[in-house]
Amino acid sequence: MRARALVPAAAAAVLLTVSACGADSGSETTGTGAGSGTAPSTASSAAEQSPGSGDSGDEPAVPEALNFTATTVDGKPFDAKTLAGKPAVLWFWAPWCPKCKAQAAETAKVAAAHEGEVTVVGVAGLDTNNAMQDFVAETKTAGFPHLSDENGEVWKRFKVTEQSRYVILDKNGATVYEGVLPAGQGLAEKVAGLTG
């Protein structure tokens, strides 16, 4: 009986996500706040840090938002704590999403232009790891890491409910932008604002 109740809910969630890929979402949000399309509460304050982080003076403080580990699409371990101390761009994409494919070239260009200053990380979901690997190869975006988030754990952490979204964090781990940038337009300007 419980399985039957879950099937319609799961189907509705998939349909909502799939329809979001083809729609032009105008729910771009900057800063933090409540409601749909806003920054996650876990990343909203640099004051929320892991216990003992930042004690050495050499290592940057690690905000709670970056206190997670994952695996890349090519099977390598990834520790988000390495993102602390400089701005980061998290690009949430799905392998079958045409809007995500349209964002790939600009995202790769920004990642290359700001290498060493800003870390760009793809967060792939909503499909299998094999499909994610194919997407990275086809879009020529292997110049930066992509997380295989098949279970949606990173998506949940940042409260991302649809693919083709960017979450931009400042050097303290606070979300300064969350939203859709069609074809990646505007990404370079947003990143430049954090480095200049």
Score class of each variant (00 low, 15 high):
A131Q: 08
H114M: 11
C100P: 01
P8C: 02
K190C: 02
F144C: 13
M132P: 05
K76P: 11
N67I: 13
S148G: 04
C97P: 03
T107Q: 07
A174V: 15
L66R: 03
G184S: 07
K140P: 15
P77A: 04
G85H: 13
W155S: 07
V180G: 06
F158L: 00
A88N: 04
A113S: 13
G75F: 10
C21F: 11
Y166M: 04
S56M: 06
K109I: 13
E178P: 11
L147Y: 03
S164G: 00
V18M: 01
A80K: 00
A94H: 01
A11E: 14
D24L: 03
Q103F: 01
V123E: 02
G31R: 02
K171R: 03
V7A: 04
K159L: 03
A12S: 05
M1L: 14
K109W: 11
E59L: 08
E153Y: 13
T69I: 12
K109D: 15
P63T: 08
V73N: 12
E153M: 12
L6S: 00
Q103I: 02
F68R: 11
V14G: 02
E138N: 14
G26H: 07
M132T: 00
A11D: 14
L83P: 05
F78W: 11
N172Q: 15
S36V: 12
A43V: 05
P40C: 15
E117Q: 11
A10M: 03
A142F: 15
K81G: 07
S19L: 13
G193R: 10
R165G: 02
G179Y: 04
T69W: 10
A65W: 11
C97R: 00
A112D: 13
T71P: 12
G179L: 03
N129L: 11
E178C: 11
E153K: 12
F78Q: 05
D74S: 07
M1N: 15
K99D: 04
G33C: 10
V7N: 05
F78E: 00
S45H: 08
A105M: 13
A3N: 14
Q185E: 01
P8Y: 03
P51F: 01
G85A: 14
V121A: 06
D58H: 14
F144T: 12
G196M: 08
G52R: 02
G33R: 12
V154F: 15
P8D: 02
G35W: 14
A46T: 15
V123I: 08
M1W: 15
G184E: 02
T42K: 09
A183T: 07
G54S: 00
F92V: 01
G35D: 05
K101W: 03
A12K: 09
G143W: 14
E106V: 02
A111K: 13
A111I: 14
Q103H: 00
L90W: 01
T119D: 04
G173K: 09
G125V: 09
V136H: 09
K109M: 12
R4P: 07
A61I: 07
S36M: 10
P51C: 05
V136S: 10
T72R: 08
G122H: 01
E106K: 05
E150Q: 14
L90Q: 06
T17L: 05
E162W: 10
G186S: 01
E28G: 09
E48K: 06
A47C: 08
